[in-house]
Design a protein around this nucleic acid. Sequence first.
DNA 1: GACCTCGTAGGACGACTGTCCTAGAGCGCC
DNA 2: GGCGCTCTAGGACAGTCGTCCTACGAGGTC
Lengths: 188, 188
Amino acid sequence: MPAAATRDQIVAAADRLFYHHGYEHTSFADIAGAVGLSRGNFYYHFKSKDAILDAVIDARLADTRRVLEQWEAEAPTPAGRIMRYVEIVLTNRADIQDYGCPVGTLTTELAKLEHSMLGQAGRLFALFRAWLREQFALLGPADQADELAMHVLAFSQGVAVMANAFHDEAFIRREVDRMRDWLSTYEK
Amino acid sequence: MPAAATRDQIVAAADRLFYHHGYEHTSFADIAGAVGLSRGNFYYHFKSKDAILDAVIDARLADTRRVLEQWEAEAPTPAGRIMRYVEIVLTNRADIQDYGCPVGTLTTELAKLEHSMLGQAGRLFALFRAWLREQFALLGPADQADELAMHVLAFSQGVAVMANAFHDEAFIRREVDRMRDWLSTYEK
DNA sequence: GACCTCGTAGGACGACTGTCCTAGAGCGCC
DNA sequence: GGCGCTCTAGGACAGTCGTCCTACGAGGTC
């Protein structure tokens, strides 16, 4: 198999395992087993575990940009786009109840490990933040846009942590409804 | 030194290390170094690492009960008591920015490890949830009390994750103010 | 002084970690 | 057929992990 395809498989498997079991708890052997390669062979594709994490974050950044573009194409109004973001906690409720938010849990873990890639992971949050800020700037006063973006991010993280802790789907729905009501007060 | 005192020291050190660096990332050697004991000696006090975690959670449960009682003694109104909870993200802002919420991050980590002690850690959340529910039941309709308790818990977790990711104290203050305004609409 | 219990130090144990090296299989190109 | 490149398997390596055992020193009791 060409190296690029194998590399993509490794990144995809590592992405899933990092999300499900955490970065530190995922070993080379785990990733190797998931891809079907020998452990020692990894050095040919990635020179370290950190390099895999870097590639996973890059892949997530690319995926996120693609999703944001899609939301912009599908939802005509800023409020509709923001609701797309809010509703991911509902769309991905099964995964979130099992594993939490992929961005939030990774950032939290890397912060505790004092890991050098923490800044890279922070770019995922920053990407959502900037996009939400843009949408809110179209909705109302520009000097509040960033605060409101942070508020929506905090909403999603709070819901994710609680949904993961209590496995309560009705709770997720209620919080999304609450957010929808709140957002409608800002709608032009 | 008597065994009980050493045991307390181990639990206190483990509590701090689990919070700062995570459960899995904290080794016996780390705790031993913090307490000033030899690694092998731990088996005399705890038969496994899980047993230490169990003791840490028990200690946190006891601490939490004590704090909740204190809040009840100090704040005369239910709304005032709820605000005591809301304001812990401000009171503990330094730690939260560095390490997140002790309860939320532990629960998130144990969920990813599929750790048998996850249920024990969940009791910490349940304790806050039940206490907040009681306060809300005094404030308004009893059938909404649990939903509102969950909403306040989600608030604190969202703020903690974001504060940890962005190290933004002004954000914490804004969110607490927002929560105060929201809570005042429920006040009798 | 002899004894016993409590608490401790130090190290052995097997398993596992991330890293790194080496040999070789497979395949296209001259 | 022979060469060279790409990709892989397998294992060595030093280190750390949680666990567990044994020997011993301190302190109180008979």
